[in-house]
Design a protein around this nucleic acid. Structure first.
Lengths: 351, 351
DNA sequence: CGATTCGATCGAATCGATTCGACCGCCGAA
DNA sequence: TTCGGCGGTCGAATCGATTCGATCGAATCG
């Protein structure tokens, strides 16, 4: 371990050629005589040289071959979210052919976590903001300041970033109209986190006014454009358990809602659980709708009424956008359509 | 975009100091007069310089600040596996304080994927083989050849790698004894993939002899040390659906087993589904046991009989091992204990 | 047979920062 | 008064490869 690793120069010396020739022999770019190449390769083997140092290579080429993906506060939460997983998978898939790696960056967080400055010092060729769409994310400023190309998914809207959106408002509007069309009037919302500060529970005016994730806000606006002001309970993270807690809270209100609009499928599953724990049947006693269109194995035969968004494609398109940016081109922003899927968890309100 | 980004040298020139002083002003190591530092920082702001180039910094320091995590064939599969997710989360958590990033490397795969050579050219300071424990993984050779420190979880056993294991054999043995103690004699196994080649179905002698993942083999050996040779059906990946397929296959055998030992909890859930689809009740008509000890929300009130392994801790210990290796020390291999958890999915065989 | 290419190889500059050793005042201690 | 030490700054070497332009011999062509 102590001994220094062989360098290209050492290999070249041993093979009796210049470093430049040795480099060509390895990279394959440029003409090298068959015999020379073999001599170099032999020398390399003898010295235990495994190829050019990635660090030096990166510096010279100006690329590290790594793309960063900013995923919320903690990996665990990101991985529990099927939407995020599908996204990351799509990105990785699109990036794979070029040998580009995906680096997970956990965003702004609390104790023990790296500071945004530390994070922005990692050698990435581009960054994807996968799921933390606050316009004022400090990481965003740092990367933009560094001149690192940024793609944002449903995320911070800035002139410098390439944006990929889904039609959050439109989807939520279709959904709300569907629920309204069934005859519901007392509706409540189980909301995604407005920001990652761990807060949960009823959303008051101050909280509403305080900004937050774009997707969450767009969906809420659409719902209230149909039903007017409705009670909203915010979940601190997008997991089933928090949906259940939010559901319990909403269902214990004096005027129980006849329909609950959950802002994600995971929350919807939680709400359904909460309802069943209270002895309510879905959809007979309570209509529950979600958002995203993920697989919901928890629901058995039932099919969740929800808005389906093209998750995997979102990831792939993101990957392609990154590829474009790395090639020095600036792709246009994109806006993907969503569609309403009417399942078996929505029905008319009880008589 | 086209214009070159400012360099530290440019900043230094503008501030009227030498590059070395400017460097010290940024890194904070070494004494710099307050006034000088401010002059440098001002010059930097004026030139839009956001701090030292990570690539150059990496080369000089000999570190990229990135640790690679090799996760099976495709990200999607890794993320669907709660064990893997808990692991990665633990690793990230342990690595976080030092600002080290986690780079996902999808292992040896098929079309479109990067070649192992490409992958091994990424600038990583260390690599964790999180879940693909084949001794002959080509990536492993490449990284070892490069002198990159490697930590393997339940993985390839090589003198160069630091190993973190759980007591796979012991746990599986306890489990098998439990099942045997209940009186079962006709037992079958739903196995994890022996290798990532997409094969599935009954495991024949050739396949048994062909090596494969260490954890899978150890668990199988323990089971057969108790019950003798048993029928084995291999799942091509560790997901519920494949467990269900394997379950259907095992349960359609002429001599139906009274107990099925699944090599993971996800597979066990699938087997239970298959059983219920056939009208069998668990555990009255069929005993099903798993491995891992993950949360199984799919099972409702039931508790899976399984072997619980300390997943999150595994991740954290891995992270600490990596930290040690980066500090130039060589930590000792570790072997974590597991324990049997008797739930409600195992019982005596039907009369 | 001389001019022109083309293939193979080499030299040297470059990527952008870090860091070791040297240097220079200046202050306090002997 | 002089020397040791320290805060502050600078020069220059270094990290390890890539790449552009130049060179040189041999083969091709007119």
């Amino acid at each position: 371990m102590g001994e220094h690793r062989a360098t290209l120069a050492a290999v070249a010396a041993r093979a009796g050629v210049s470093p430049s020739t040795a480099s060509l022999a390895f990279s394959g770019s440029g003409p090298v005589a068959q015999s020379t190449r073999e001599r170099v390769l032999t020398a390399a083997r003898e010295l235990g040289y495994a190829g050019p140092d990635p660090l030096a290579r990166s510096l010279r080429r100006g690329r590290s071959g790594i793309v960063g993906a900013v995923v919320g506060e903690r990996l665990l939460y990101a991985f529990r979210d099927p939407v995020a997983v599908a996204l990351l998978d799509g990105i990785a898939e699109a990036l794979s052919p070029s040998g580009t790696g995906l680096l997970l960056l956990s965003g702004d967080a609390q104790h023990g976590s790296p500071t945004p400055e530390q994070v922005s010092r990692l050698p990435v060729d581009a960054v994807v903001f996968a799921m933390c769409g606050r316009d004022d994310d400090p990481l965003l400023d740092l990367f933009i300041g560094r001149g690192v190309p940024v793609v944002a998914i449903d995320g911070p809207d800035r002139p410098e970033v390439t944006l990929l959106r889904i039609d959050d408002y439109g989807g939520a509007l279709d959904l709300a109209k569907h629920v309204a069309g069934l005859g519901h009037q007392r509706v409540a919302v189980a909301a995604l986190p407005l920001r990652l500060d761990g807060r949960s529970g009823p959303v008051d005016d101050a909280r509403r006014a305080a900004g937050g994730f774009a997707d969450c806000r767009a969906r809420l606006t659409a719902t209230e454009d149909v039903f007017g002001r409705v009670p909203v309970v915010e979940a601190p993270s997008n997991v089933v358990e928090e949906g259940e807690r939010a559901g319990r809270l909403l269902l214990s209100a004096p005027e129980r809602p006849t329909a609950i609009v959950a802002q994600s499928d995971l929350l919807a599953v939680g709400v359904i659980r909460a309802a069943e724990a209270l002895g309510l049947r879905v959809p007979d006693d309570l209509t529950v709708v979600g958002y995203d269109g993920i697989d919901t194995p928890w629901l058995g035969e039932r099919v969740l009424t929800t808005v389906v968004q093209p998750m995997a494609e979102k990831g792939r398109i993101t990957g392609r956008m990154v590829t474009e940016l790395l090639a020095g081109r600036r792709p246009a922003d994109a806006n993907l359509p969503v569609h309403l899927r009417v399942g078996t968890t929505s029905g008319p309100p009880p008589a």
